[in-house]
Design a protein around this nucleic acid. Structure first.
Length: 940
RNA sequence: GGGCGCAUGGCUCAGCUGGUUAGAGCGUCACAUUCACAUUGUGGAGGUCAUAGGUUCGAAUCCUAUUGCGCCCACCA
């Protein structure tokens, strides 16, 4: 007999259990030809990351899948690692420097990077430690970092391959520029928010010429949301079809403030219906204007420094911030009477996804990837079902983006990241001697003095000059993340690169990649479908020739109770570590799974985690009760494997049947990633079937049993069978619960096994136990039917007692009346359970005339339940209650009669539905008769 | 401007391919404590499934429109 605390104490259990798993190396995996692979690559959290609810949710899903498939006999690898998160990490370290009064420029590139690495060494594993708290069973030996030398090799390899294929190019484009981070961003990194801004209407005077004197107006009004950019205007555009402006095309206007002469041009882009129908054209500060500028050969005037202070081109406004300048310009225009009006105007404005600064469309020279060719196979794979999204609706979102994909700006003007493997030869550039692409065998290419190379260069491979330098920029973080499903395995397996860490001797990276790739499923949030999921699919096909994963499970976003995203600035964060400290990791996991339905966002409050805590405690106490009453020697004898179902009592047949039915639906839910449903199935079975009914049914047999005497074999067969079944069902239920609640199930499971086994120390783990198999022959509809009747009757009796203000402990006398012979037989069979669980003094079954006595009745199915209560009842009230019941029942019966009276229903509805309806009607009618009879008796 | 999601008892949500007396958890009310568990047990009350049409023998479920909330995408200055 084993004693447990009366409450489950996660704090005493979790760290110990986690250490147990790690000591035994139970998360380790390798290419194993004897098993099928199952693999998930973790969405690598940022090294700067601190575990938040989104991580908790995301990683719980993954851990459930990993643990489930491990138990199902797969070689189940969860690849772990972290992302160097270029801008985010650089920002963190810069902030730290700022506290010392330093800027990164004060240190210089190398010293600064040293600081970042230092920071990474010190804090970079925080998130990993926190993932362990969650119970994550990653193969930690394999943990990767996107800046590992091995991984960086993959990044350079990919850059060179794309360059050689002509899919990477350098160009002057309008990109999203973050003036605070001082770097270019990709389109995805500029997040658009609605802003309540203004539309400014500005008069641009028309230059008086002989020609223009005949015009009616002497100015043209343009509308803009960013008046400061007018300093860079090099034209005004109108639509050629716009009759208002037709005559003005070709005229010259005087750009106010700077007094520059610019032309009025015609361009189809201009929408006559918006604003005034005339647009100021600022080719260096707006993507559309840029295109117009190219079409019309306009001048590109950059008016801003990278930090968004205006430059010398801004004349007297030089040196001012862009928004300050906006105010000043408005004032100056007003003074000159050139400001016609200001209208409020809400529009969406791009913000830096890292620091939320408003981004500036900015003309600069950047590096791009041509995406269209990469997108093709990635589109096809999703269309033909090679890759499936769960829930399905994300397919459309993905395809829509992919089909309209634009080139990807991959260069960043920061220091922390993979430096572009691009080298410039000054000599070649000066002489301009190279006019065509030159490709050498070792895949170094040169073009106009540019060489792209995997290996560090110190001489120009073309002219041999040593006067070369590497590009200062680094690559977008996602340019490394998109390689995650294969680069984590060590691809491209350069022999020159030392493996980062000595791994288990048996590891063979190439073999592992062949074995585990394509991975099984990717679990992630909708926010990064474009950033990451789509790009991984493209990279998978481009570099591996195969999809990186087959299923993509997109889960919801974690929100606070009001539906707002959790964020530090809103102060509405629920810290998962705090929840773990208070309620336990299993409670956190189980609650999250219960609260989040497929693909739907989840609204959380701390209180909601009580659900999981209470459930864990219930499981704990059910196990505690079991362990207190099981003779583990009995339940672990081999005999237990050979009991015959026919020899079991009803409650045992019932709980086994319920268990296997539950397992069927559990498997179905899990196979379709329906975690919410799965947790509901487990909760319902464990609490409301196993605990509420089975343990209560088993109690009298277990608690009052004779001491077991194996030598004399006096143990009753009933008692032994009860113990065996209880043990088996509990043990298998623990296995089913394990993926959801790994800690508590391991703790209990070990108690069950250790208590029985001869080993003093546990050597096995529930983790590596097989997932229970369905045993169809154990599903026993008869037993379920009989128990259903027993449960209905017991509930009806309890109900009557409660109505009569009797406590449940008070013992009463009950009669059950039924005309149905089958039911009567079942009642005879289950009477002892009814007597026991409803606390009865005696139970009469089937004998007519019992209702002569005074008492209260209820109807359970086709059974009249009569509770004898001499002189205790209020007849009026009782009749009223029964009448109410008759009323609602009659409605139902009438509806059914009408339906069955309908010809079309009988003709068109499937016969089994009609049959069912008939049965229900008959039952309803019988019940009505019963009720009326009861009233009749009461009135006597 | 386009697309998507959500609207079911006081609260949070289930309800798959149309046939239940529309479920659960929390909350609420009543009762119960030498019993594995008050992080508990037993029982009750509480919903014309957002609105309007339609399809159907039959709609919370399918279709259309409307309203409200939320999200994503888009170069209309």
């Amino acid at each position: 007999m084993i004693e447990l605390n009366s409450h489950y104490e996660p704090k005493e259990v979790e760290d110990r259990i986690y250490a147990f798993w790690q000591e035994r190396n139970l998360f380790a995996t390798k290419a194993n030809p004897g098993k099928k692979p199952f693999c998930i690559v973790i969405p690598p959290p940022n090294v700067t990351g601190i575990l938040h609810m989104g991580h908790a949710l995301n990683n719980t899903y993954q851990d459930i899948l990993i643990r489930l498939n491990r138990m199902r006999g797969f070689e189940s690898l969860w690849m772990s690692g972290t992302d160097h998160a270029g801008i985010a990490t650089q920002n963190v370290v810069e902030r730290k420097l700022a506290k010392e009064g330093l800027k990164r420029q004060d240190l210089g590139r190398d010293k600064f990077l040293e600081r970042v690495w230092q920071w990474k060494e010190e804090y970079g594993s925080t998130i990993i430690k926190q993932l362990k708290k969650l119970g994550s069973s990653c193969d930690w030996e394999r943990t990767r970092f996107t800046m590992d030398e091995e991984y960086s090799q993959a990044v350079r390899e990919v850059f060179v391959r794309l360059w050689d294929k002509g899919l990477i190019y350098q160009g002057d484009r309008i990109i999203n520029w973050c003036p605070r981070c001082q770097t270019a961003l990709s389109d995805e990194e500029a997040v658009h928010h609605e802003i309540n801004g203004n539309l400014y209407y500005i008069k641009y005077p028309i230059k008086p010429t002989a020609d223009s004197r005949q015009l009616t107006a002497d100015y043209i009004v343009v509308a803009t949301t960013r008046p400061e950019t007018m300093l860079g205007d090099t034209a005004v555009a109108v639509n050629s079809k716009d009759r208002r402006y037709k005559k003005l095309i070709g005229q010259t206007v005087i750009l106010p403030l700077l007094e520059r002469e610019i032309k009025i041009i015609a361009d189809e882009f201009v929408d006559s219906k918006f604003g005034t129908g005339a647009v100021k054209v600022t080719p260096a500060h707006d993507p559309n204007d840029y295109e117009m500028g190219k079409r019309h050969n306009l001048e590109f005037i950059n008016i801003m420094h990278p930090d968004a202070l205006l430059n010398v081109n801004a004349g007297e406004y030089a040196g001012r911030d862009r928004f300050e300048a906006r105010e000043a310009i408005i004032e100056d225009l007003r003074a000159r009477k050139l400001l016609e009006k200001i209208e409020p105007h809400t529009h969406s404005v791009g913000h830096c996804y890292r620091c939320n600064t408003i981004v500036e469309p900015y003309l600069s020279r950047q590096w791009f990837v041509k995406m269209k060719p990469l997108a093709e196979p990635a589109i096809k794979a999703v269309k033909d079902g090679t890759i499936k999204f769960y829930p399905k609706r994300w397919t459309k979102v993905y395809l829509n983006w992919m089909e309209n994909i634009r080139d990807w700006c991959i260069s960043r003007q920061i220091w922390w990241g993979h430096r572009l493997p691009v080298y410039y030869c000054k000599k070649c550039q000066e002489t301009g001697s190279l006019n065509s692409k030159v490709k050498s065998q070792n895949s170094k290419s040169a073009f106009n003095g540019i060489t792209v190379s995997k290996d560090k260069l110190d001489k120009c491979p073309v002219c041999g000059s040593g006067d070369i330098y590497q590009d200062e920029d680094v690559l977008d973080t996602w340019f490394s993340s998109w390689l995650w499903p294969f680069a984590t395995f060590g691809w491209p397996f350069q022999p020159s690169v030392e493996s980062r860490k000595p791994k288990a001797e048996s590891h063979n990276p190439q073999a592992d990649l062949d074995y585990f790739y394509p991975t099984s499923v990717l679990v992630t949030a909708p926010e990064i479908i474009f950033f990451w999921v789509a790009r991984m699919i493209m990279a998978g096909f481009e570099f591996m020739g195969k999809e990186p994963f087959r299923d993509v499970y997109i889960h919801g976003t974690v929100r606070d109770i009001e539906g707002k995203k959790m964020s530090k600035s809103l102060g509405n964060i629920i810290d998962p570590l705090n929840i773990i400290a208070q309620y336990g990791s299993d409670a956190l996991r189980f609650s999250l799974m219960s609260l989040t339905s497929v693909g739907q966002d989840v609204y959380l409050s701390e209180q909601k985690f009580e659900l999981g805590r209470n459930f864990a405690n219930k499981l704990w106490n059910a196990s505690r009760f079991s362990l207190m009453n099981l003779d583990l020697k009995v339940v672990n004898t081999d005999l237990c494997l050979f009991f015959k179902k026919e020899k079991l009592e009803l409650p045992e047949r019932w709980i086994l049947s319920r268990f296997y039915s539950m397992l069927q639906s559990l498997n179905k839910a899990l196979d379709s990633y329906n975690f919410n449903q799965a947790s509901g199935i487990l909760y319902e079975f464990t609490w409301h079937e196993f605990c509420d009914w089975y343990l209560e049914l088993a109690k009298p047999i277990l608690v009052n049993r004779e001491p077991f005497d194996s030598a004399q074999g006096r143990q009753s067969a009933e008692n032994r069978n009860t113990q065996i079944v209880l043990y088996k069902v509990l043990e298998k239920t623990l296995r089913c619960l394990h993926p959801f609640m790994p800690f508590i199930t391991e703790e209990i499971w070990q108690k069950l096994i250790v208590g029985a086994g001869s080993e003093p120390a546990p050597t096995e783990s529930i983790m590596t136990q097989p997932w229970p198999h369905i045993q169809k022959q154990m599903i026993d509809k008869k037993a379920e039917g009989a128990m259903r009747i027993a449960i209905e009757v017991i509930t009806a009796i309890r109900n009557l007692k409660a109505q009569m203000k009797l406590t449940s402990a008070q013992i009463v006398k009950v009669s059950l009346l039924t005309k149905d012979q089958k039911t009567q037989k079942i009642l005879d069979q289950v009477s002892k359970y009814i007597i026991n669980l409803a606390k009865l003094e005696g139970l009469n079954i089937g004998s007519e005339d019992l209702t002569r006595k005074r008492g209260v009745s209820a109807i359970a199915g086709n059974i009249q339940v009569f509770l004898e209560l001499e002189g205790l009842i209020d007849i009026e009230k009782e009749i009223e209650k029964l009448n109410k019941e008759i009323e609602s029942l009659s409605k139902d019966v009438k509806a059914k009669e009408a339906r069955l009276g309908n010809k079309e229903f009988n003709e068109k509805a499937p016969p089994e539905i009609v049959e069912k309806e008939k049965e229900l009607l008959a039952a309803g009618k019988e019940k009505l008769t019963h009720l009326n009879k009861i009233i009749h008796e009461l009135k006597k």
